[in-house]
Amino acid sequence: MTREIAIEARGLTKVFGGRGSVFGRQTGGARAVDGVDLIVRSGETLGLVGESGCGKSTTGRLLLRLIEPTAGSVAFNGRDLTELTKAELRRSRGKMQIIFQDPYGSLNPRMTVGDAISEAYVIHRIGDRASRAKSVLEMLDLVGLPRSAASLYPHEFSGGQRQRVGIARALALRPSFVVCDEAVSALDVSVQAQIINLLQDLQRELNLTYLFISHNLSVVRHISDRVAVMYLGRIVEVAEADHLFADPAHPYTQALLSAIPPSHPDEPRHRHELVGDLPSAHDIPVGCRFAPRCPFVQDRCRATDPQLSPLPDGRFVACHRAADGSLPTYRLNS
């Protein structure tokens, strides 16, 4: 059964530092997100991966309208967030939340854990002091922290415990959609596993929808139902997680997955090394933006920008050669 669409972005664009517009298109500046089309289905985890600086975190914030888009639209449960007034957007905040990367920097060091979690109830005028205190204790139970944590300050916790506080704060209003922005990247490997398991348990219990942003491909493979690959402000491939990791279609996806360390030192490894650096978002190449680094580039790639299009196997890929079946195949070692 096809799941309902929770979040749908169309032509989502964010330009930082532009100098005005020409024919409706902002000129100059850095095109951090450039015409992104993305769908997140209700109850799923969509992984979003790509190199640092490709626009992943900006995309997550645009979906929540934490920053204003330069162009495009974002629909949450069928309602366009870009058209909401500030008052309407504020009322919608309870259903859309974010878990930040830094579990210490995202918490106010002058506020107790109980105050940090109950702040959401205060802002949205939910309950009285007694009911808020009770809700805080319930949230601490939910994320596996002792109730005594409510009276403590962030510096009195470990990194993993602080991230649990961040999760409790994000879920205090019982949202349906949560952006996990590098939510485990600042944690030790063993603690990462605990937080990932917690997020999965909470998803099942509360019927949550996640956008999981990460550069850790192994974690993304474990937690995601589908994966979107981002390069220089654009989505270049979207596929079911198992399908994408077993048989990547876009040359950039192939290069990313080939960089995953093997599970055993004796396991053969076939690297797809890229030449050159990620181009600047201030000076995006003409045609396919991956063409300057692509080992399979053709003349048409330098002239025409490929659009994200469906393939017969159900995935979406922005690549001329993948679309017509002329791209050399690549299989990830199992």
Rank of each mutant, 00 (worst) to 15 (best):
T2L: 13
I5R: 13
A6S: 14
I7P: 15
E8P: 11
R10G: 10
T13M: 09
T13R: 08
K14T: 01
V15A: 06
G18L: 00
G18E: 02
G18Y: 01
G24N: 11
R31C: 00
R31M: 00
D34T: 08
V36C: 09
I39K: 13
I39V: 15
T45G: 03
G47Y: 12
L48I: 02
K56W: 15
S57G: 13
S57D: 14
S57A: 14
T59K: 06
G60M: 14
R61V: 00
L62G: 11
L63E: 10
L64H: 05
P69M: 03
A71M: 02
S73W: 08
V74P: 15
A75P: 10
T82P: 06
E83W: 02
T85M: 10
T85I: 12
T85V: 11
E88R: 05
R91Y: 14
S92G: 10
R93L: 13
M96R: 14
I99N: 01
I99V: 07
Q101I: 04
P103Y: 07
S106T: 02
P109A: 03
M111Q: 09
M111W: 05
M111P: 05
V113L: 12
G114I: 00
G114H: 00
I117L: 10
I117D: 11
H124A: 04
R125F: 12
R132F: 06
A133N: 11
A133H: 09
E138M: 03
M139A: 05
V143F: 08
G144I: 09
R147C: 07
R147W: 05
A149N: 01
F157A: 05
F157P: 05
Q161G: 09
R162T: 01
Q163P: 10
V165T: 02
G166Y: 04
A168P: 07
A168R: 03
A172D: 04
R174I: 03
F177W: 14
C180M: 14
C180P: 13
A186T: 08
S190M: 13
L199H: 11
L199E: 11
Q200V: 10
L202M: 15
R204M: 02
L208C: 05
L208E: 04
T209R: 03
T209K: 03
Y210E: 00
F212I: 01
H215C: 09
N216R: 06
L217V: 12
S218W: 02
V220Q: 07
H222K: 11
I223V: 14
S224P: 01
R226G: 01
Y231I: 02
A241Y: 12
L244H: 11
L244A: 12
F245M: 01
P248A: 06
A249L: 04
A249P: 00
Y252E: 09
A255C: 15
L256S: 07
S263W: 13
D266P: 05
E267F: 13
R269D: 07
L274C: 13
L274M: 13
L278G: 06
A281I: 00
A281E: 07
H282Y: 03
D283Q: 03
P285C: 06
A291L: 12
C294Y: 13
Q298T: 14
Q298N: 12
D299K: 14
T304N: 06
P306T: 12
L308N: 07
S309P: 00
F316G: 02
V317D: 08
A318M: 03
A322Q: 01
A322K: 01
A323Y: 13
A323W: 11
G325F: 14
Y330L: 04
R331Y: 08
R331I: 04
L332N: 15
S334K: 05
